[in-house]
Simulated scan of single mutants.
Amino acid sequence: MPEIVLNYDYVLQINTTPEAETGTYADVKKGFDNIAEALNEVVEQSSYLGDGGYGSSEVTGGQLILTLTGKRYTGDPAQDYIFSDAVYYNWGKARKTDARLICPDGSVISCPVTLAKVTRSGGAANSSTAVSVEVHFNGKPAIIDTRLASLQIGSLGLTPAFDPDVLQYTATATSSSDSITAAAQDSNATVAIVNGSASVTSGGDATWVSGKNTVKITVTNESFTRTYTVIVTYNS
């Protein structure tokens, strides 16, 4: 059944220590109540002699920009970094950091960013302090994928049928063991398979006990993971 996607299902993280070798990422959430995404496409429009006055368009480029608005909360790591004096009153390198957007499907968009149009005060005297910032993605974002491309347990049918975005499955075994094969979408990701407490190499056999067996397949890409679960029922 189709499901609606809510804005709070997305998690935006900002690196609050861009000068460090290993960044410290904080969730951008407290105080921000609105986020707008724009790709800022560059459109080239052309009309040729043989087109009878009609034109055609080509999208030749763009830049992803997220605009965040809300109210100021002190003590929140992301807000304290974005609206700090070190960022607000300086330009160039001081405005550059890294951000990543964790999507509801588990994929992660990662990219160096520039913090622009930072506004850290404003509003009526008896209202909360209004704030805003634009997060400009610099260059093409990298997609960190933690999805499986395929999952097969012997000749067993999975219920529901395998879908990279579905994490829970059931299956019924008719013999005491079956091979488990799983492959990740991203060649940089690793796949770990565990049947109960026993590790299984992709392509290797899992041994079933009578009753329900819990198989977990975890995909790891950089520091992000996604775990698929298959409950295999075997009646010996």
Rank of each mutant, 00 (worst) to 15 (best):
T60D: 01
E44T: 03
G53T: 00
K96Y: 01
A38K: 03
I65Q: 15
D76I: 04
K96D: 12
G55K: 01
Q13N: 14
T22K: 09
P112S: 13
G61Y: 01
V59D: 08
P18Y: 08
G31F: 04
R72C: 03
F83G: 11
F83Q: 05
C111T: 05
E37I: 05
Q45F: 04
E37C: 07
P18D: 05
G31D: 08
R100G: 10
K93M: 13
A116P: 01
R100Q: 10
L39P: 00
D80Y: 10
G31K: 05
P77L: 07
S110H: 04
P112R: 02
I82R: 08
N15R: 02
A78Q: 00
I82K: 11
Y25E: 02
E44A: 10
I109G: 03
D105H: 04
Q13F: 09
T67H: 03
K29C: 08
W91S: 14
S46G: 01
I82S: 09
Y54C: 11
T17N: 13
D51G: 07
I65C: 00
V28L: 15
D76L: 11
V43N: 01
P18Q: 03
A26Y: 08
K96H: 06
V87I: 14
S56C: 09
V59S: 11
T69L: 00
V108W: 04
V42H: 05
P77V: 09
E44M: 05
N34H: 10
A99Y: 06
G50Q: 02
T69R: 05
A94P: 09
G55I: 00
K93R: 11
L39N: 13
T67C: 02
L115K: 03
K71Q: 14
W91M: 09
L39C: 01
